[in-house]
Nucleic acid binder design. Sequence first.
RNA 1: GGGCAUUUAGCUCAGUGGUAGAGCGCUUCGUUUACAUCGAAGAUGUCGGGGGUUCAAGUCCCUCAAUGCCCACCA
Length: 729
Amino acid sequence: MNKVYSHKDVEERIYQEWEEKGYFAPEVNPKGKPYSIILPPPNANAPLHFGHAMYVIEDILVRFNRMMGKSVLWLPGADHAGFETQFVFEKKLQAQGKSRFDYDREELYRMIWDFVQGNRPVMENQLKRLGFSLDWNRKKFTLDKDIIKIVHQTFKNLYDDGLVYRAKRLVNYCTHDGTSFSDLEVIYEERKNPLYYIKYGPLVLATTRPETKFGDTAVAVHPDDKRYKEYIGKELDIETVLGKAKIKVVADEMVDPQFGTGVVKITPAHDFNDFEVAQRHNLPMVQVIGFDGKMNEKAGKFEGLFAKQARKIIVGEMEKKGLIEKIDENYIHRIGLCYKCKNPIEPLPLEQWFIKMEPLAKPAIEAVRSGKIKIYPKNMDKLYFQFLENIKDWNISRQIVWGIRIPAWQCVRCAQNQKYNNSTIQQSNNDGWIVTSGEIPEKCSTCDSTDLIQDNDAFDTWFSSGQWPFATLKTSKPGDFEKFYPTTVLETGYDILRFWVARMVMLGEYEARQVPFENIVLHGLVNDPLGKKMSKSKGNAVNPIELVDEYGADAVRFALVYGTALGNDQSLSYPKLEAMRKFTNKLWNMARFIDMNRTQNSKVKTQNNLTIEQLSNLAINESDKAMIEKTAKLTKGITTLLEKHDFNHAAQGLYDFIWHEFADIYIENVKNRIDENSFLILNSLFLILLKLLHPFMPFVTEEIYKRLWSKKDHLIISKWPSFAKASEG
RNA sequence: GGGCAUUUAGCUCAGUGGUAGAGCGCUUCGUUUACAUCGAAGAUGUCGGGGGUUCAAGUCCCUCAAUGCCCACCA
């Protein structure tokens, strides 16, 4: 054995051996108790980012349980990541001077498909470099035909159960990216924008968006506001930049008398609050901004201007006409932005598919409250409840081509008969829509017309990934769903608890009739060495594979779980990576020491692995006896910690014991008195430690096993050490 | 406006009511054969501030402060 451990000569070779032997498949332990984890499918649009390296937690669990003799399935996959992938692809197009408008739907879809297929092997290879023992024969993609079929069916079932409806509502719309979003995808930032005080006849009101005034269908005051009591219910004659107009005054609790002048303009088509006020007071809705972000014909001479440009010009004209009382230039408020392109979200009225969430959220809340699903770390359940207890209906329509197209067709004839009046707010299912589980309907079920048009929209990606646990298991190998559902653990970053985890619980309970997993394990985020969030655009993102190259996968894996409490964020630490690399080298040299002390006689005996019990009977020397006892205790401790998902303490316990107990004290002690008997003990104890460490550092432990014990067998499928003789406490 | 997390050695962070811990860094010493990617010894802490409970508090309770994150319709 070489004096220095070189991970580069070991890792890829070992991984290949494992994979070729089929060790990653549950069939390795066919009779074992099922244990399953579905890998959170990484986005297929880019190489792995550092967060993906945290999936090491799953590999630790998977390897531990495999050694415990369970039938372990860890199923890999990739997410088409609808809008995000289309966004990334559009940037590529942009770099070539092209845009999505240069291609038709099919062409664009095919181009993105090819792009994604090119990325997938890169991503998969990176997961392998980290040593993840995923069953690659079962890998799934969210756009596999059989997965799409399941997603369609779920949608159809929800529709038939009245849990999906189509409605024209205000949605979060990004006029830059040309699609709507769910509430979760809007981020909020503080911005300084002028607050304009505008004269509306006898009243003055404050607004940040004067350009939407052509869509005003009322002004509102608080019902108890004495200042304005006389105006309530009356119509005001007002002067505007487009001439004279009339506007109604309504009273609504939503108005805060303390803010501005206590008068609010009501623009139902462009503000979420106003939309609700309009519903309460039966006010008409007038859309003045189009989906291209430009003012429409309702804005008269301002038509064609982008809303932001129009604002300046309109304010200018208002000032000339004396309609502006004052402008507060230092007004700070929070505005909604597109989480991807950071342009302001424009609330716009649009017909979309919505899922009624409350009936789905209730059982999901109950599943965690009752303990059917356990969350680690425990305090994260607050995030979960907070989301589900205040849940709103989910807009699942996206105006994108990259994704699963919604299996809904509209009958042209029926639609014309019940055409939406732009000035009313409607919610209806009876407007000529036909929802199927994927197949193209032959004719309209109401009027028999064959003039049907499919909805252009695709599902929100999270709608399909929300079905991932049952969709994958129902389509991987026959019997997988029956054997592995519900899965044992869902492990992911806490940042997608609401986006993904909560939705999986809801959709899993709905469609698969059972919770999708028994345990939720949440890890924290990995920040850069200065504690700042890693991001590509900021340029501080670290490629995990570069670190694997430099320090070895074992060191990277160990550094990520050592010294960080589960669920806490951590900053990438190069000294820690270096320390863990040294630990792999230390192990290597412990192995060298043992290897060098092997005599001809012991070569035969150490073929058989001795259990703690056998070792206890063998031990004569007092410090041997003590070490056997300590190792048994450690085994028990590590086992318990892993069962409790306490990876940090398991890692620390192993590190401290192996280095500072076993190497610094025990090996130093044995060194001077080594004989046949003590060698057998030393050798066997070391193997126990290698096994305990294997889930954390699979490569170096496997390589040592190969050198010292067996060229044929592998540690990965060896039996977890027993600790029957460990004393209590 | 709510909620959550964090605050422990110079730095990065563990800490499960019972004599303050690790890694890196620092000081001194040590290389004839497991490892200098090492070993031995050592220095460094009013555990954010202030109250309280307890025989005993870094740990439990209250309060204040700083930092970070999440949620919320203030036009």
